[in-house]
Nucleic acid binder design. Structure first.
Length: 936
RNA sequence: GCCCGCGUGGUGGAACGGUAGACACAGGGGACUUAAAAUCCCUAGCCACAUGGCGUGCCGGUUCGAGUCCGGCCGCGGGCACCA
C-alpha cells in the first residue's frame, strides 16, 4: 500500500450532507505507533491486512484442489474487463462473491473461487489508435495493474488459476471448440448487415454510431452486407426456453427477460396474392401472431430488404432512394423502433385471402425487419400502435375487429374515431365485431387459435411456432479478438485449420495508424497454404465476438492449464457453478450465450450432461453510484463571438458539500478559497455565503444524485485510495452495508468513514474482551442468548444474500457486547463468535481478533458457528392490539396462549373498551404470536 | 418504441399480507476535555401544546388488516443482438 493520499482529497466532498469536515481523519496507516502497551487497542489495517494475507498465502488456504469427503462449492463472479484500474463496482461484486466463498469454506465445503480477465475487445484497439501503443501491451499492463490493485482486498481467490482470454493458451482452446462446433453443424456462414463507415472504410459497432454518424469520421453510416459466421443458437431456442423453468435459484426477472428475448410465438403464416407485381413476386408471405385481426387488415408492409423491395429498387430510382434512406439508420433494434415510421407506396396491391375483391396497398416500411418472420406483415391499425401511427400518417383505413368485452361503455373510443390502438393482453376476453371463427366473446388467445384452425381448414395458411431469437453472428472485423481458425481456398472453399496447428495466433507486428482491420493488411499472416490441398490460400481475417470468450471461461477455470478445452474429470468434479454473481446488464446476452455454449460443449464432449445448464444459482447485484457535481465554465471567444457557458464536471474531492436550509448544497473548494473576507470554509454560514456568491457569478455547483459512475462525469471513487486510507476491510464492509446487494448503492465518503469507525470500535471491544476479568456474572446468559440469535440472523443473511441485514445485526450485537457486564470468558466467547461472523466480510480484522482472543489456527479455517435453537426461544411475546386495523395498544402474553384467552385479554384492554363503548365487537382476528385485530 | 426492474424520514435502508421507519449516515442535546480530536450517553418521520391526525411516488381496488397483492398512471434505472 502506498502511503498518504492528501487527506483533504478524500475527506472533503462527496459527503451527502452535513457540515464541512475541516480536519479530516488522518490515514490510519500513517500513524507509526511505537510498539508497546497501547499497541493492542489501536486498529491498524495497514499492518494487519498484509500480515494476514501473507499468512493465507503461506498456508495455501485458498488453493482449490479436488478432494473427496467434502462437498465442492464453485463460486464465481463475472470476470472483469481490464480497463486499467479497478472500480468500486468491482469491489462490491468480488466482495459479495468472497463472502459466499469464505462462508462456504467455513461450512465445510471445498471451494473453487477463481479470477480471470475478459481481455479481448475494442477499448484496447481504441487505446492503440489514440496513443500508438499495441493492444497486447496495453491489455497486459492493465491486467498487471488490476491484479496489483485487487490483491490488497484480501479476496479468497485461487490466483494460480488466473488467465486472460487473450492468452493464446485460452483462445487456442476456443478455436478448438469452434472447429468441433463447425464439425457438428452448429456454425455456418450467411450474409448479414453491419454499420459501415464510408469514410473510414470500416465496420462500426453500434456504440460507435452517434446519431447516424461514425464517431470519428462523422460520416453518415450505411448498412452493408458481409458474409459472416453464425452459431445456430436458434436451433436451441425451444430448449433454452423450456429449461428456464428448472432454474429455481435464478432471479425471476432474468428468466422473464430471457423468455421474452427468445420470444416464442404461435401464429399464422400465409400468403397474399399480388396484383401488378413484377414477375416472380405473385405471392407475399406474411407471418402474424394476431390472425384473429385479419378482417382489420389495412395494408401490407415489407422490409426494405425484402426480395420484392429489392426488385422494385432495381426498377425505380424513387424506390431505390427510399430504400437507401431506410438503410441509413443504424442496425440496432432501438434505432429502428424509435425512428419515425416511414413508408413508400409501391402501387402494388394484394388480395385479401377471405375476399379477393378486397385489395390492400403494399408499402415498403422502414420499421420491418427482414430478419424476423418473413420480412413482411399485414398492418392492422386498430390493434397495433405502430400500425395505427402508420395508417394515420398515410391516411389508410382503420377498422376495429374487437372491442372491450364489458364495462367501459361510454369511455371507450374506437381507434377509427381517434382513440388509441386497442391492444389488450391475449388472456383478456374481448367482444369480436366481425367474428369469422370461434365465439363472439372470447380471449385473444382463443381468437388466435380459432383463426388458425379456420385458416388451416380453408387452405389460407398454417399455424407455425416462431422464435424472436436470431442466430448469433460472431464475426468481427477487428484485430484484438480470437482469430476464426479457417482458411479460404479457391479450390477447396472454406477449410478448417488443423487442430495441431492451433492456436492460430494473432501477429504482433501490426499498426493502427489507419482504420480497419490490420489483419486484412498483413500479407505474411494472411497468406497461407490451404490445409487441405496446399495451394495458396488466405486466412479468415475476422475475429470472434468477445461474447464467445466469456461463454465458456467458467468451464476453463476447472482446468485452466489443460491441453484440451476442458478436462472431463475436473469438469465433472467442479461443475456446475454453484453461485454465479454479476451485473443485471448481463441478464440476457451473456447468460443466454453461455447457456448455449454449455449445451454445445456437452454435444461435442467437452462438458458433462449436468452442465447443459452451467449456473445453478444466479445473483445479480446493483451498481455503485455517486453524485455528479456539475458546474459551468465561461469559454471566452475573440470578438465578435459571444462568450459561451460550457458544462464542466468536478471530482468529488474538488467540492465541499454541506446542508443549508434543509437542502444539500455544494461549493467548489478552489472558488471558496479564492474569495477573501467571507470566511472561506470555516462555517456553514460562510459556505452558504460562498454558495450565494458562486450562484451570482455563474460558478454554482449543481448536485445530480445517484448517477452511474463514469470517468467522463468525474463522479468516480477510486478503491485504491479508499484502501490506502481506511484499509480493505472498511471498503468491503461499506459496500456490503446499507443497501441490499441487488440494488444500486450510493458511495458516500461519510458512509466509508462510518464503516471505518465501526471496525475500529469492534477492534477495541475485542481487545477489551481479551483482557476482561474472568469473574462470572449474572448477565452471561443475556449476552449468549443474543449471540445465538445473531449467529442465526447473520447466517440467514448470508444464505439469502441479505448481507446488509446481516450487517445490521452485527452492529446491534456489537453494541450489546460493548454494554454487557458479562464475565470475561463469556465476553471472549461472544467476541470470538463476532470475529467468525464478520470473517466473510472483514477477513483481516476477524483474523486479528481471533488470534488476540485465543482462537485456534486461522479463523479462515474455523468451522462456522451454529446457533443453539434452545437459546433463542422466548417464552413471552408482545402482541399489538389493532382496532379496525390500526394499532391502539399491546399486550404481553405467554408465547403459546390459546386464542380465546388472548381475545379475552384484548377485549379488556382499555383502548378496546373505549372503542367498543359498551357494544359488542363485530369480529376479532387473532394471529397467534403476531397480532390481534378487533373490528368494531 | 419494446422487454425487465425500482420508487419508504434530511440520507442509505429494515419490515413471512400483521406494531412502518430495525441498523446506519447526517442533525440536535449532553458527558469527558483548559480547548479540540477521539470516545460514550440521550434524542429524533411529518403536523399539532396535547388528546390526536397524516404518512411507504400518484389514483383506484381486494382484505379484518396493504410498503407488500391487483389495475391504471408518473418518475428513475437496466437491456435491445457489434460496449463489455
Amino acid at each position: 500500500m502506498k502511503a498518504g493520499i492528501p487527506p483533504v482529497a478524500a475527506a472533503r466532498g462527496s459527503g451527502r450532507a452535513g457540515p464541512p469536515r475541516l480536519s479530516p481523519p488522518r490515514p490510519t496507516h500513517a500513524r507509526q505507533r511505537p510498539k508497546g502497551s497501547a499497541r493492542m487497542s489501536r486498529y491498524t489495517p495497514a499492518e494487519i491486512e498484509p500480515k494476514w494475507q501473507k499468512a493465507w498465502d503461506e498456508a495455501l488456504t485458498f488453493k482449490a484442489e479436488r478432494k473427496n469427503g467434502k462437498p465442492k462449492y464453485y463460486v464465481l463472479e463475472m470476470f472483469p474487463y481490464p480497463s486499467g484500474r479497478i472500480h468500486i463496482g468491482h469491489v462490491r461484486n468480488y466482495t459479495m462473491g468472497d463472502v459466499v466463498a469464505r462462508y462456504k469454506r467455513a461450512t465445510g465445503h471445498n471451494v473453487l473461487h477463481p479470477m480471470g480477465f475478459d481481455a479481448f475487445g475494442m477499448p484496447a484497439e481504441n487505446a492503440a489508435m489514440a496513443s500508438g501503443g499495441h493492444p497486447k501491451t496495453w491489455t497486459y499492463d492493465n491486467i498487471d495493474t488490476m491484479v496489483e490493485q485487487m490483491k490488497p482486498l484480501g479476496l479468497s481467490l485461487d490466483w494460480s488459476r488466473m488467465f486472460a482470454t487473450c492468452d493464446p493458451e485460452y483462445y487456442g482452446q476456443q478455436q478448438a471448440l469452434f472447429l468441433d462446433f463447425l464439425e457438428q453443424g452448429m456454425v455456418y456462414r450467411k450474409n448479414a448487415v453491419v454499420n459501415w463507415d464510408p469514410v473510414d472504410m470500416t465496420v462500426l459497432a453500434n456504440e460507435q454510431v452517434e446519431e447516424g454518424r461514425g464517431w470519428r469520421s462523422g460520416a453518415l453510416v450505411e448498412r452493408r452486407e458481409l458474409t459472416q459466421w453464425f452459431f445456430r443458437i436458434s436451433d436451441f431456442a425451444e430448449d433454452l426456453l423450456e429449461a428456464l423453468d428448472g432454474l429455481d435459484d435464478w432471479p425471476a426477472k432474468v428468466k422473464t427477460m430471457q423468455a421474452n428475448w427468445i420470444g416464442r410465438s404461435r401464429g399464422l403464416q400465409f400468403a397474399f396474392s399480388t396484383t401488378d407485381a413484377p414477375e416472380g413476386h405473385d405471392r407475399i408471405e406474411v407471418y402474424t401472431t394476431r390472425p384473429d385481426t385479419l378482417l382489420g387488415a389495412s395494408f401490407v408492409g415489407i422490409s426494405p430488404d425484402h426480395p420484392l423491395a429489392r426488385q422494385l429498387e432495381r426498377d425505380s430510382e424513387e424506390v431505390a432512394a427510399f430504400c437507401a434512406e431506410c438503410r441509413r439508420t443504424g442496425t440496432s433494434e432501438e434505432e429502428l423502433e424509435t425512428a419515425e415510421k416511414k413508408g413508400y407506396d409501391t402501387g402494388i396491391t394484394v388480395r385479401h385471402p377471405f375476399d379477393t375483391s378486397w385489395e390492400l396497398p403494399v408499402y415498403i416500411a422502414n420499421f420491418i425487419l427482414m430478419d424476423y418472420g418473413t420480412g413482411a406483415v399485414f398492418g392492422c391499425p386498430a390493434h397495433d400502435a405502430r400500425d395505427l401511427e402508420f395508417a394515420r400518417k398515410y391516411d389508410l383505413p382503420v377498422s376495429s375487429v374487437f372491442v372491450p368485452a364489458m364495462g367501459e361503455e361510454g369511455t371507450y373510443i374506437l381507434p377509427e374515431d381517434g382513440g388509441p390502438a386497442y391492444v389488450p393482453p391475449k388472456v383478456e376476453t374481448v367482444r369480436y365485431l366481425k367474428p369469422f371463427a370461434g365465439e363472439e366473446a372470447m380471449t385473444g388467445d382463443s381468437g388466435v387459435d380459432a383463426a388458425i384452425a379456420f385458416c388451416e381448414e380453408n387452405g389460407v395458411g398454417q399455424g407455425v411456432t416462431k422464435y424472436r431469437l436470431r442466430d448469433w453472428g460472431l464475426s468481427r472485423q477487428r484485430y484484438w479478438g480470437c482469430p476464426i481458425p479457417v482458411v479460404h481456398c479457391d479450390a477447396c472453399g472454406v477449410v478448417p485449420e488443423k487442430k495441431e496447428n492451433l492456436p492460430v495466433e494473432l501477429p504482433d507486428d501490426v499498426s493502427f495508424d489507419q482504420p480497419g482491420n490490420p489483419l486484412d493488411r498483413h500479407p505474411t499472416w494472411r497468406d497461407v497454404a490451404c490445409p487441405s490441398c496446399g495451394a495458396p490460400a488466405k486466412r479468415e481475417t475476422d475475429t470472434m465476438d468477445t461474447f464467445v470468450d466469456s461463454s465458456w471461461y467458467f468451464a476453463r477455470f476447472t482446468a485452466p492449464r489443460a491441453g484440451t478445452p476442458t478436462d472431463m474429470a475436473d469438469a465433472e468434479y467442479w461443475m456446475n457453478v454453484d453461485q454465479y454473481i454479476g451485473g443485471i446488464e448481463h441478464a440476457i446476452l451473456h447468460l443466454l450465450y453461455a447457456r448455449f455454449f454449455s449445451r454445445a460443449m456437452h454435444l461435442t464432449g467437452h462438458l458433462p450432461e449436468k452442465s447443459r445448464e452451467p449456473f445453478d444459482a444466479l445473483f445479480t447485484q446493483g451498481m455503485v453510484t455517486h453524485a455528479i457535481f456539475q458546474t459551468y465554465r465561461r469559454e471566452t471567444h475573440p470578438d465578435p463571438q459571444p462568450d459561451k457557458l460550457v458544462r464542466h464536471y468536478l471530482f468529488p474531492e474538488e467540492v465541499i458539500t454541506f446542508q443549508h436550509d434543509g437542502i444539500e448544497k455544494a461549493v467548489e473548494t478552489a472558488f471558496a478559497e479564492s474569495l477573501e473576507g467571507v470566511g472561506g470554509l470555516s462555517s456553514v454560514q460562510a459556505l452558504a455565503e460562498v454558495h450565494r456568491i458562486a450562484d451570482m457569478n455563474g460558478r454554482g455547483v449543481e448536485i445530480i444524485p445517484s448517477a452511474k459512475m463514469s470517468k467522463s462525469k468525474k463522479n468516480v471513487v477510486d478503491p485504491v485510495s479508499i484502501i490506502s486510507q481506511y484499509g480493505a476491510d472498511t471498503a468491503r464492509w461499506f459496500v456490503l452495508s446499507d443497501s441490499p446487494p441487488e440494488r444500486d448503492v450510493e458511495w458516500t465518503a461519510s458512509g466509508a468513514e462510518a464503516a471505518h469507525r465501526h471496525l475500529s470500535r469492534v477492534f477495541r471491544i475485542a481487545a477489551e474482551a481479551a483482557r476482561a476479568e474472568d469473574a462470572p456474572q449474572g448477565s452471561d446468559e443475556v449476552l449468549l442468548r443474543e449471540m445465538h440469535k445473531t449467529i442465526h440472523d447473520v447466517t440467514q443473511g448470508i444464505e439469502s444474500f441479505g448481507f446488509n441485514a446481516g450487517i445490521a445485526r452485527l452492529y446491534a450485537f456489537t453494541s450489546t457486547l460493548s454494554k454487557s457486564d458479562a464475565g470475561g470468558e463469556a465476553k471472549r466467547e461472544a467476541a470470538r463468535t463476532l470475529a467468525q461472523l464478520m470473517s466473510p466480510m472483514t477477513p483481516h480484522l476477524a483474523e486479528e481478533m481471533w488470534s488476540m482472543l485465543g482462537g485456534e489456527g486461522l479463523v479462515a479455517d474455523a468451522p462456522w458457528p451454529v446457533a443453539d435453537e434452545t437459546m433463542m426461544v422466548e417464552d413471552t411475546v408482545t402482541m399489538p392490539i389493532q382496532i379496525n386495523g390500526k394499532r391502539r395498544g399491546e399486550v404481553v402474553v405467554p408465547k403459546d396462549m390459546p386464542k380465546p384467552e388472548v381475545e379475552e385479554l384484548a377485549l379488556s384492554h382499555h383502548a378496546v373498551l373505549k372503542a367498543l363503548d359498551g357494544g359488542a365487537p363485530k369480529k376479532i382476528i387473532v394471529v397467534p404470536g403476531r397480532i390481534v385485530n378487533v373490528v368494531v
